[in-house]
Amino acid sequence: MSEPPGHEDVAAAADALVAAFAQGRLDDYFGAFAPDATFVFHTTPQRLTSTAEYRALWQRWVDEDDFRVLACTSTDQLIQHFGDTAVFSHDVATRVATSSGEETLLERETIVFARTADGGWPAVHEHLSARTTV
C-alpha cells in the first residue's frame, strides 16, 4: 500500500519538530508551529492559543525552575491524512531537568499539521497527555 501524497513531507516535519525539541533548539522547535497554533497540555490548566503564548510559558518554566529538555524519544508513530491536514500521534519519553533534578516523563502526543499554499506543513495544534506505564 502506497503512502498518500505529502506523507514524506509530514513525516519530515514531525521528525524535525521532535528533533528540535529533543536537542533544545527552541527557535527551530517553536518555528515548526504556525503562529496561531493551539496547545493542550495535561500539565497546564488552560489551553494556550498561540505559539507566542506557549513560548512565554516555556520561558517562565526556565526562569522559575531552570527547566531544560535533555532528551526525547518518539515511538509508535502514526500519521493519518485528511486532505490538507495530517494527524501525527506518538508516544514520547522525555528526560527533563529542573532545579529539583532530572526525571523522565512518559506521555502521548498528537500534533496536527496543515498544508500551506507553498507546500509547507506547519503544526497547528498539539495535545499532550500522560501515559501510563502499563
Rank of each mutant, 00 (worst) to 15 (best):
E8L: 10
A37D: 07
P45W: 11
Q77Y: 00
G120K: 09
F21M: 10
V112Q: 02
P4N: 04
G6C: 06
A71F: 04
Q46G: 05
D84Y: 04
G83K: 02
Q23W: 04
V18S: 01
L78E: 12
L26R: 10
D84R: 11
A12F: 08
T116F: 00
R68S: 13
Y29C: 09
A11D: 05
D27K: 08
A34V: 09
A56L: 09
D65A: 14
D118P: 01
A97E: 14
E53A: 15
V10P: 02
S74D: 11
H7I: 09
A22M: 10
L106S: 12
Q46S: 14
H90D: 02
P4Q: 01
D76F: 01
T73M: 05
A34Y: 07
R108A: 06
R108F: 03
A71K: 12
R115E: 08
E102T: 15
A11G: 02
A52I: 07
D36M: 09
S89Q: 11
A20E: 10
R47Y: 01
A34C: 07
W61Q: 12
T98P: 07
D84W: 02
D65V: 00
A32N: 08
F41H: 14
Q59V: 04
S2E: 12
T116C: 05
R95N: 05
S89M: 11
T75D: 13
H125Q: 13
E107Q: 15
H7C: 02
E109Q: 14
L17K: 11
A52H: 08
V112N: 01
T104K: 06
V10W: 01
D76C: 05
D28A: 15
A130Q: 13
E8C: 01
L106I: 00
A130E: 13
S2V: 11
R95G: 07
P35T: 07
D15E: 15
D84F: 03
E109C: 12
L105M: 12
A56Y: 02
T43E: 14
Q46H: 13
W121C: 04
S129F: 05
V96C: 07
P5Y: 05
T98C: 02
R25E: 13
E109K: 07
D15C: 01
S2P: 11
M1K: 03
R108E: 05
W58P: 03
G6H: 02
Q80C: 04
G6A: 02
D28L: 12
A93W: 06
G101Q: 06
A12P: 00
T133D: 13
G31F: 05
L128R: 11
A11L: 12
V92N: 10
D27E: 15
